[in-house]
Nucleic acid binder design. Structure first.
Length: 598
RNA sequence: GCCCUUGUAGUUCAAUGGAUAGAACGGCUCACUCCUAACGAGCUGAUGUAGGUUCGAUUCCUACCAGGGGCACCA
């Protein structure tokens, strides 16, 4: 348990035994961070909450409680005050603040870790890019939300597995295959036939020959394939036949399928590696797409589902869950996405012995997810409360009129992840003087800073809100940005490097806190921020908090020399050490690796 | 039609039912012989509308206005 948590527990205990409140049922003493430094560091509204029930004036009640607390010894609290309309405010003592600095220095990379989820196993599914398109900003948000959630859960003590689904079969991939055959041949006289490609593979372009990345190449195949199949009936029929042949295991078609997929995978992998993404498990659709039917059958036998006249199977969610019903099995007996989802959910639950399953999926799937969860509960696979759809807002672009505009492949407004990172990288590299200072000391500095800037920009807003992406504004290099946080870290490290010796936690005892007070106050709340991120399943609290720390640190840095040769120097160095540590830990949760110089 | 969801400075984002609604960008000042100015200090400026619940509402409820998403054999 961290210092802040202990202090809050201690306060709660003392408030509870306060004579005015001692008999109350279900008494919960809410102690939270004060909204403004003028109101202390911690605050409780307990007097406001219970004054009515007790029939007393809130201020008087607050004063009585404060008087009671004043009578007990609390080393963490320097001052208690009552403010209208009835808040009790607590001020941290210098001892508490400096002890916390020592804790950070001592616990290092573990400072902030909690045990709320200790012993729990979580599975987080995220990203799941379809291998027919290059990854764009929507995928980026999904990936960053997923990966940051993965770390938030770990920091709260859970054992976490991440997985994704590779939707590598079906009509979309067939369109890629067709688009490749029909539009990527070097000689237009060549027939658009799988056999022709098989016999003369070198007569079809590769991404290298086209001068584009493999993901862009696949996107082109898909877009052209979709366009042609829409316009041309023969092409449409051909593409449908590809799906059928693929299902029958036609070796030629399978070979073409693997060929186009290899390009898609290469592109996806390149982008995901750049983001430092990670999956413990990848479910390839071609391996499981027929699973799930037995669950539907079982549900039919138990009378949970009903068979329609045409043979399709329908859910029964309306009465018990208040959800619209949906088809679980097509009339021809084949599976749908939801059928597969049921099977996969059962497998995940079993294989990972999972307590909680999380799906990071866009908001358009909200109803579908609810239906999957409900059906899984009906089938006894798990309980509703074990399943969570972690949704996220759309990433849009700024429209001409200043409004929100969804990305559209038809209108060519889809922004690719790699393009964004490259653009930010170019922006960073435009700052030549700064780069010259360090480009030989830190390899790939501009790439690292660009990744930091992009990740921070996407993770800073609440994940549920739509995000208007404007590369000039969203990915700041100044102000509220990943680069700013990184810069603050580098500044801190620079001081420590100049000092050149190890900074010890013991150097902190018995000091009087000065201009660094605001910084110390913020540092104490880091574990609390990680808990809040768990409650909301959103890492944006961490991002906001890192800005707060950075700002407080830079403000202090500007007002005071740290290496001043005074007897406070060694203590101030511990504060710098603690700051850099918290920045590093917080950035790690966001998936941003620090650099030591920039 | 039904269900879900969003509306905060000029712009991009914050604010676990609390107190004086915070930042950043932009604009206007100030500041660089000093541990990294990719910095710091100051000024400017906002809760869609109308009710309700509450000691207290950006937050909860209702209606309206304006966006976005979804609604059975697509993925």
């Amino acid at each position: 348990m961290n210092g802040l948590e202990c202090l809050i527990k201690e306060l709660q205990t003392h408030v509870k035994v306060c004579p005015q409140l001692v008999g109350m049922e279900d008494l919960f003493v809410h102690i939270e961070r004060s909204s403004h430094p003028n109101f202390g560091d911690l605050t409780t509204n307990i007097a406001l909450q219970y004054s009515k029930t007790l029939g007393v004036n809130p201020i008087e009640l607050a004063e009585e409680i404060a008087a009671h607390l004043g009578g007990v010894s609390l080393s963490g609290i320097a001052k208690i005050e009552v403010r209208k309309p009835g808040f009790i405010n607590f001020y941290f003592s210098d001892e508490f603040l400096s002890t916390n600095v020592a804790d950070v220095v001592e616990q290092g990379a573990n400072f902030g870790r909690g045990e709320k989820l200790k012993g729990q196993r979580w599975v987080v599914e995220h990203t799941s890019p379809n291998p027919n398109k290059a990854m764009h900003l929507g995928h980026l948000r999904n990936n960053l939300v997923g990966m940051s959630l993965y770390r938030v859960l770990q920091w709260n003590g859970a054992t976490v597995t991440t997985d994704e689904i590779d939707n590598n079969r079906g009509i979309a991939i067939a369109k890629v295959m067709y688009g490749f055959l029909a539009h990527m041949k070097k000689d237009s006289d060549l027939p658009t036939e799988v056999s022709a490609w098989l016999a003369h593979k070198n007569q079809w372009f590769t991404p290298e020959e086209k001068g584009v990345g493999p993901d862009v190449f696949v996107t082109e195949c898909y877009v052209l394939g979709e366009k042609t199949t829409k316009e041309n009936e023969a092409a449409e029929k051909f593409t449908r036949q590809l799906v059928v042949d693929w299902e029958h295991g036609d070796t030629a078609v399978r070979e073409l399928w693997e060929h186009v997929l290899s390009y898609a995978y290469a592109g996806i992998e390149k982008t995901l590696n750049r983001l430092d993404s990670h999956f413990d498990r990848v479910w390839h659709e071609h391996e499981h797409y027929q699973e799930g039917k037995q669950y539907v059958e079982a549900g039919l036998e138990k009378g949970i589902f009903q068979k329609l006249e045409d043979g399709a199977v329908l859910t029964n969610l309306e009465s018990s869950y208040g959800l619209p019903d949906t088809i679980l099995l097509k009339r021809d007996g084949t599976a749908l996405y939801i059928t597969q989802d049921i099977a996969l959910t059962a497998r995940k639950k079993k294989e990972y012995n999972a307590d909680k399953l999380v799906w990071v999926v866009g908001p358009d799937q909200s109803l579908a997810m609810k239906q999957v969860f409900a059906v899984c509960e009906q089938l006894g696979i798990g309980e509703l409360e074990d399943f969570t759809h972690v949704s996220y807002g759309y990433v849009g672009l700024k429209a001409g009129d200043g409004g929100f505009q969804k990305m559209s492949s038809r209108e060519g407004t889809v922004v690719l992840i790699d393009d964004v990172i490259d653009a930010v990288k170019a922006k960073i590299e435009a700052n030549e003087s700064a780069l010259e200072r360090n480009h030989e000391l830190v390899p790939d500095l501009s790439e690292k800073l660009a990744i930091a800037a992009v990740k921070f920009a996407i993770l800073k807003p609440d994940r549920t809100q739509d995000l208007t992406f404007d590369i000039n504004q969203s990915v700041n290099v100044h102000g509220d940005s990943g680069v700013y946080v990184m810069y603050s870290y580098v500044r801190a490290k620079s001081i420590l490097e100049k000092y050149g010796r190890e900074v010890l936690a013991q150097n902190v005892v018995g000091v009087k806190v000065g201009g660094e007070k605001e910084l110390l106050r913020s540092l104490a709340f880091f574990p609390n921020v990680i808990e809040r991120s768990l409650v909301d399943l959103s890492a944006h609290h961490v991002a906001t908090y890192l800005l707060e720390i950075s700002s407080a640190f830079n403000s202090w840095y500007g007002s005071e020399s740290i290496l001043d040769g005074s007897d406070r120097e060694i203590y101030k160095l511990a504060v710098v050490q603690a700051t850099s540590q918290v920045l590093k830990n917080g950035l790690a949760i966001l998936g941003i690796q620090t650099v030591e110089r920039m």
